[in-house]
Design a protein around this nucleic acid. Structure first.
Length: 321
DNA sequence: AAGACGAAAGTGGTTGA
DNA sequence: TCAACAACTTTCGTCTT
């Protein structure tokens, strides 16, 4: 087996064997063909040849064996109305082991009722989790579209959210807070330049609450969040300020130097990025005022000023406006 | 008149006892 | 849990272009 496949196996990807009975690998002739669902590829398990990639699963994710079953499982048609709580499921089986006449139940009947209760409990837990997810996902949709977050990121957010739920995050954290925190976490991981402030603003959650939820999430779910670098913000800010790529590149160089000088540690990355752009703008003759830069970076002019003074002093750049 | 500057006081978060 | 602390903000008067 090839090395790549072995590693994948260790990562516990989803394989679906037996779908390709009688199919031979065109490379080695092996019949051991598997479908790697997570990557959407059909692979030969013997030589590792990717037979077909970028496959999309067009069918339903469930299997059915009779026409009736197929009809039942199909979800095409008008959707269930989730805004109605517990629709049609509100009858609980009582705890008393008596029938409607108050007579005691026989042992076999009692066992039956016990089983029913057990299932009802299970179904209720299941559906409450389902409802939670539905609410969370719709909130995620709203947030992501408002913040211009791509689809792939959204899916990662959903994954982390699920993990967070499973790890039993505190009940004091609301669904909205947790979704926003998960979104911010993925942005940090994938280096999508969004600040905690922005996420807080768009999700209408207080920054403090969001921060708490985020920290809780990091603690409970096993994800390592890389510290955000000011360089990540450069493309975005320079774009918003309509600065050329030359300025952006210069700003990046400045930030690299600043990092080596050790003047970036502990400083707000957005402020640092703003200052670098300000200096770069002066050098490349594409000036923007401190106010403009401060606005897009969401820091104050004073911060831009302080950072840029530091940069000029420590790096020995002569950039007088 | 706009932009840059810097002092001073205030705020929210981190850290270490 | 609390105080010390560094970073950042707000505000405002002054200087420079």
């Amino acid at each position: 087996m090839s090395e790549a496949l072995e590693t994948k196996g260790k990562n516990q990807m989803n394989y679906s064997k037996s779908l390709f009975k009688g199919v031979h690998c065109i490379e080695c002739g092996s019949t051991d063909i598997i479908w790697d669902e997570t990557r959407g590829e059909i692979i030969c398990n013997n030589c590792g040849l990717v037979i077909k990639e970028h496959m999309m699963d067009m069918g339903p994710e469930w299997r059915s064996y009779t026409a009736e079953e197929r009809k039942k499982r199909s979800r095409v048609g008008s959707p269930i109305n989730y805004s109605i709580h517990d629709k049609g499921l509100s009858t609980m089986i009582g705890r008393e082991n008596r029938d409607t006449y108050g007579k005691k139940l026989g042992p076999s009947r009692r066992a039956e009722i016990y089983r029913l209760r057990k299932w009802q409990r299970r179904i209720r837990i299941h559906s409450s989790r389902e409802r939670n997810l539905i609410r969370a996902l719709s909130e995620l949709d709203r947030l992501a579209s408002q913040m211009g977050i791509p689809r792939s990121i959204k899916e990662e957010v959903a994954m982390i959210y699920r993990k967070a739920l499973e790890s039993g995050i505190s009940r004091s954290t609301s669904i909205e807070e947790l979704v926003a925190a998960a979104l911010y976490a993925v942005c940090r991981i994938r280096k999508i330049p969004r600040t905690l402030d922005e996420v807080a603003e768009k999700s209408h959650i207080r920054k403090i609450k969001l921060g708490k939820a985020f920290r809780q999430l990091v603690r409970k779910v096993n994800v390592t969040i890389p510290i955000s670098s000011p360089i990540d913000f450069i493309p975005r800010f320079s774009n918003e300020l309509e600065l050329s790529g030359k300025v952006a590149n210069r700003a990046k160089e400045i930030l690299d130097e600043a990092k080596e000088e050790g003047i970036t540690a502990g400083k707000d990355p957005t402020g640092m990025a703003a200052a670098a752009l300000y200096v770069a703008g002066i050098i490349e003759n594409e000036r923007r005022t401190q106010r403009e830069i401060a606005r897009v970076a969401r820091v104050t002019e004073v911060t831009v000023r302080n950072r840029y003074k530091e940069i000029v002093r420590e790096l020995g750049i002569s950039a007088t406006p």
